[in-house]
């Protein structure tokens, strides 16, 4: 339909060069062009947080960013953060506490939780609730997720 544009990014540590339609959003690019399907699509208007991706170290909504905006950037997805071990303690607590049920929100929730703990090493439960309030979970009632994030923060504090 439209002329494609070349973009060059680093995705989970790998250099990627692709021709994309200007209108392709970042999460569709990651899911369908790169076949990294761990980032999910829930609402496509920035409300649900299922498409949360890290771009240049900050979490973004993959549905509100265009792929071309990632040109020259550093993209990290749930797959990359799982491989490099950055969130392994969060994942462990999510497993023990059953903090993911259907798994749709889970990758976005993990990336959001990781961003919270980067900026606030010992958040209160209310601070956790506020920070993850841009991530919609229909299954858990959120309490297990809050427990898992709180426990991860406590464990990291102890290990310091």
């Amino acid at each position: 339909m439209t002329n494609r544009i070349e973009i060059n990014t680093t995705v989970n540590g790998e250099t990627v060069s692709r021709m994309v339609e200007p209108r392709t959003n970042l999460v569709d690019f990651v899911r369908y062009d790169l076949e990294l399907t761990g980032s999910h699509v829930g609402c496509e208007h920035g409300v649900c947080g299922a498409c949360t991706i890290r771009l240049n170290g900050e979490i973004v909504r993959g549905c509100l960013m265009l792929a071309v905006q990632a040109d020259g950037g550093l993209v990290e997805t749930i797959e990359g953060l799982s491989e490099n071990g950055k969130i392994s303690d969060l994942q462990e607590q999510f497993l023990i506490r059953n903090a993911g049920q259907c798994g749709s929100c889970t990758p976005g929730m993990l990336l959001t939780a990781d961003a919270l703990l980067e900026s606030n090493a010992s958040p209160t439960r209310m601070e956790i609730r506020e920070f993850i309030s841009g991530n919609y979970c229909r299954c858990t009632g959120f309490e297990a997720i809050i427990d898992a994030i709180e426990k991860t923060a406590q464990t990291r504090q102890k290990e310091r």
């Binding site: 980032s39 994942q91 497993l95 993911g100 259907c102 798994g103 889970t106 990758p107």
Partner: peptide
């Protein structure tokens, strides 16, 4: 016993297989 769910680890790693992931 609150045994962890065996299908949860793959979901936590973004390795689930939902219908939209099928190509």
């Amino acid at each position: 016993r609150s045994v962890p769910r065996p299908n949860l680890p793959r979901l936590l790693k973004g390795r689930g297989s939902y219908a939209d992931d099928v190509k």
